[in-house]
Design a protein around this nucleic acid. Structure first.
Lengths: 266, 266
DNA sequence: TTGCTCCTCACGTCACGTGAGGTGGC
DNA sequence: TTGCTCCTCACGTCACGTGAGGTGGC
């Protein structure tokens, strides 16, 4: 009267694979690491899973869905007959990690979508230049942590234009003007040079003023980025601005520094 | 006048690691697989990276951020001097995969949050029962694809209660009533039995009616689930309902089948 | 001479996938 | 006898991490 499947029913590995949607290899693996083993074997060595094994396997599969590792699952099954704190803690950790992960994914998604948009609208004429712009974005993100980028983005928000691109665009304009001054031989204490320096400062200040600490971090990050990658940044600016001839990036940077020093009284 | 870093400047592997934020081991790896190698070596065998190598490395790092594999990056760099279709296609694929990924994550996040909520409000008294409920949810999801679950959810939406749990709750009530009939020895053509059968059908129909094709898929899925996992499901129902004694799940299922057959004229 | 950087093996990671070569049960 | 299922090795995956043991340059 108890139905045809009592506690003495056994399952082959193939039957279990079908019922659970796992592969035979996966069941072999669980056996190897001792997570779920067949309680018995036939004379020929074939695995015979008991109702208890089956039971355990279903739990393993249920916990796998939450992204727990096999080792974590083993510890949950070890502890959870008494209490569920292990499970609770692991799930809480998992939740926090998923949140971080989800954030990263949505950011990345947005960036890729933006790039594809540009490629589709063929805003990018030159493959070389496109790849180079990507390099600069990734360089920037290496030195400016997410917190700093958000901070910069707040102060300089334009639809569809990232803070990185906006800063870059501003810098490029000023660098071009500074080079003109160098080529024209304008002295560092000339009013025109001093005016340039003021605008340079103004633009940089447009990104600042929210928090003393963050402003300092921005300056430090920018400095490190320049020091560590001077060669690459120079090359980029040179090609991006189409500069050729005697006056290079290093010269312009040196000039601006001298202008600034002259302005603050040497 | 060109600045102190000309095209003849060389970088050690350590300098490059610092500038890019990658590890030395990573640079070794890129060299091993031929993705970015040092153009030169010193007499002692130390890698000397040229400006060209540096350039390539920055591109690799930029593309890595988008989740492209090293092999994919290699193909982008191989093709992209001429055109960007390779990059475009890879990014488009990546975008689609990120969308799928994001969906899975948000679903999973929701489920874990729900479970943690229950654990925190200690709605779950018994660790064993909690794990068993998880098993059933995962069993259900193995047979009912996402599309089917969404379909069922639409018809039977209660706040905070998933379709799985709702269906389960309904089934349990009916199963309990059916067992009473079996124990009381009520014949299959008795009006009380026939009424039970009608309500059984009504509840199942509450989940249906949106689409012929989907209804059929639901029936097929439910049938396969039962056939493949009869032992496990029986055991679950027995313990969940606290059934003991002579009348088991198999008996109740058989009884309901006979009632249905009697109702439709054998 | 002492650190620090650099070198080349070479195994480990995580959860299996994918054959290779052979046996067992209907 | 023929399929189908089952078995045990054992290497491969992907992008490095992590020592092990040794050399080079200031």
């Amino acid at each position: 009267v108890t139905g045809e499947e009592g506690a003495d029913r056994r399952w082959s590995i193939g039957e279990l694979a079908r019922a659970t949607g796992l592969t035979v290899r996966t069941l072999h693996h669980y056996d190897e690491i001792g997570l779920v083993s067949a309680g018995e074997r036939t004379d020929a060595g074939h695995r015979r899973y008991t109702a208890t094994d089956l039971h355990r396997l279903y739990r393993v599969r249920a916990l796998r869905r939450f992204g727990l590792s096999l080792e974590e699952i083993a510890s949950v099954l070890r502890d959870s007959t008494e209490d569920l704190t292990t499970l609770h803690d692991l799930l809480a950790t998992q939740l926090a990690e998923l949140d971080i992960h989800a954030n990263r994914i949505s950011q990345l998604r947005q960036q890729i979508a933006d790039l594809l948009g540009k490629l589709d609208r063929s805003i990018v004429p030159d493959p070389e230049q496109f790849l180079t712009t990507l390099e600069m974005i990734s360089l920037f993100e290496t030195y400016f942590a997410e917190e700093l980028r958000d901070y910069l983005e707040q102060r300089r928000a334009e639809p569809g234009v990232s803070a990185t691109e906006a800063m870059l665009a501003d810098w490029l304009v000023l660098a071009e003007e500074a080079r003109q001054c160098v080529r024209a031989g304008i002295p560092v204490d000339d009013p025109r040079a001093q005016d340039l320096c003021r605008r340079w400062t103004t633009i940089l200040e447009a990104f600042q003023g929210g928090s003393e600490a963050l402003d300092e971090q921005v300056r430090t990050a920018a400095h490190s980025m320049w020091v560590d990658n001077e060669a690459r940044l120079s090359a980029y600016l040179t090609s991006r601005l189409g500069w050729s001839g005697p006056v290079g990036v290093a010269d312009v940077v040196g000039y601006v520094r001298r202008v600034r020093d002259a302005g603050t009284g040497r």
